[in-house]
Design a protein around this nucleic acid. Structure first.
Lengths: 348, 348
DNA sequence: TCTGGATGAGAAAACGGTTTCTCGGGAGGG
DNA sequence: CCCTCCCGAGAAACCGTTTTCTCATCCAGA
């Protein structure tokens, strides 16, 4: 079983089975013609030696490397990692491995990684980013391999996968309306982001054209500041706040608590991103819109493989649905046990 | 420049330059003997055609794939991503690409990814995890390629890289002492973690054997609970809290603020991990110990390459120093501007 | 003028598989 | 009984490089 020295080659298998290399190859790949007996004999020999074919040799002739590249500028990995997980999940069964290349926003670095990947004959490339409406700092429009964009802007005529921000946004607002909330405010990120505009539009649409949208930065600070703003202003206060991301949501929840406004009784809060580390650690844990990044990754993996294997794929932008993850920041039917979680302490 | 159809092979370069394939190869690799003129001629032809050698063909004969695999069970990527960034940084210049494989804690998945990588003839493997004192659920002890462990426990006689928890811990405590803090408490994670024990020991050591250590879970909740505990208990209250990670630190800072205890005036707080998204978003931003994961990654990349190229590397555990990142939760010499950050709001 | 070493360059083998081509033999049909 | 066809299996070509070997040629030294 995998001796120390040289790895076992198909030659060794053929020798042990008493057949030619050609026959061995065909036996193992279930191609060619031979008796079932011969085929079985070869397979037994291969198993006995622990033979695994050299992917480079195989790839050279098949012109496939069973390898794809993931290019991203999301150095923090918050968006890319779930996407990556989905890609991997979709491809590992086909024996495809994934190169991960973080290129920051550096065109030179991007070129470096891209060239390295092309040299290695990747079967395809998936480009991913931290922002749907920005491009990676590297041109992928005339590559000898197929490209799929996931969560970043693609080139003309490309295949692009994004989450359906509008649907996610609408779902959040409908949820709040269903719970009887009347004055729903949207606190979100900078208007320069396409996803911000799209979510805001869907929010307004769900409210029949009404609504209040506050734009700020993507931070807890802004969540705080927005609550200050809302509670200092004249007029009726909101009974629900739909936030553009979980960090803003966290700031909002904290600010409300500090003001003595109770969540979810007085004000319901919904976040966006379902970034577990943030959403589940707010007090109370925050209901949030999940963009299903893993599903985007799976789909991207599936599509790039389709393309790599020569099947046609309709170009264009595909939107995958978001999913509302219910926690305790909206109240409603679920029993709102505001538990502190089994914290145990040992003094020593 | 990279025409659509078939990629350009060295044959094309040789043909254009009017030399043989062998000569072309030697010219491009700066090996063999030939006139400078011939060499230049080939290089010009290669540049003109945009020739890039097929790494699979090259790898087949050189028995190098210029590829390494990163195996991790850290699905959230908090530890693995910085390590990955370091590895990439160290290797991209050598033309080495990195396969990232998330294997959760599933032995079958681990084997699947490992086999896929070995088939692809990776030059080496780096194993990484979310916990220094746990092994990946896959045996890497008798592989035909070198293995380096980064931030996870290795096998007998292996090369392992970890952060120097004791030094980091000591640095944090020294910092607090230098600022005149006298009653420093350590609030940290479960004692089952080796890093917890090591940090706690170093903390006690820095205090001359004294000290109070509170163990709980790795959560904001526990940070809160610990403060409750400390402020409800009899006796003198701490004037500094050194936390086992940033999430606990965040809970501590929040709990203190809610109690009206001011940070850093009354109590200084130090975190661990320097997880920017947490540490910089506490109010005030939190001083924290950075484990230099990127440096660990760089070193792991460097070492696995050394091994892959046949050079000897002393086995054993190598500890890389931590670095204290000063923010505003300890006061001290730096001007403690408790700014709210340029929050701008636009109502629309 | 002859020999021998150095030099430039190409032919060919190798890497480890897959795939096409070839070939001998057995079965079946005329 | 002979011819054909099909089947099983091996020989050889191929993928795109690198590397070793071989071989002219040229120049220096005797």
């Amino acid at each position: 079983m995998s001796a120390g020295g040289g790895r076992v080659r198909i030659y060794d298998v053929a020798h042990l089975a008493g057949v030619s290399v050609a026959t061995a190859s065909k036996a193992l790949n279930d191609t060619g013609r031979m008796t079932d007996e011969t085929r079985a004999k070869v397979k037994v020999a291969a198993a006995e030696l622990g033979f695994r074919p050299n992917a480079m040799a195989r790839g050279l002739i098949q012109r496939r490397s069973f390898t794809i590249g993931l290019l991203t500028n999301d150095s923090y990995g918050r968006f890319t990692l779930p996407v990556m997980a989905g890609i991997s999940e979709a491809l590992v069964d086909q024996g495809v491995s994934v190169f991960l290349c973080g290129i920051e926003d550096d065109p030179a670095l991007g070129k470096l990684h891209l060239d390295a990947m092309l040299d290695k004959q990747v079967d395809g490339i998936i480009a991913s980013g931290k922002r749907v409406d920005r491009r990676l700092p590297v041109d992928l429009s005339n590559l000898p391999v197929p490209v799929v964009y996931a969560f970043t802007e693609g080139h003309e005529g490309s295949v692009t996968l994004v989450s359906d921000d509008a649907q996610g946004s609408a779902e959040a607002v409908e949820h709040l309306k269903r719970l009887g909330r009347k004055r729903i405010v949207h606190v979100t990120g900078p208007e320069t982001f396409a996803s911000v505009r799209e979510r805001a539009a869907a929010y307004r649409n769900a409210l029949g054209g009404e609504g209040i949208v506050l734009h700020g930065e993507w931070s807890e600070h802004w969540g705080h500041a927005a609550v200050d703003l809302l509670w200092t202003a004249e007029g009726a206060r909101p009974d629900a706040i739909f936030c553009g991301n979980d960090q803003i949501g966290r700031g909002v929840v904290d600010a409300l608590r500090e003001r003595g406004v109770s969540v979810p009784e007085d004000v319901a809060v919904v976040g966006f991103d379902n970034w577990d580390i943030v959403a589940s650690q707010t007090r109370p844990p925050m209901t949030s819109v999940d963009m299903n990044l893993k599903a985007i990754g799976r789909e991207a993996g599936r599509l790039v493989l389709e393309l790599a294997e020569g099947r046609a794929v309709e170009p264009g932008i595909r939107k995958l649905p978001c999913r509302l993850v219910i926690r305790q920041s909206c109240g409603g039917n679920a029993a709102v046990t505001h538990r502190r979680g089994g914290v145990e302490a040992t003094v020593d």
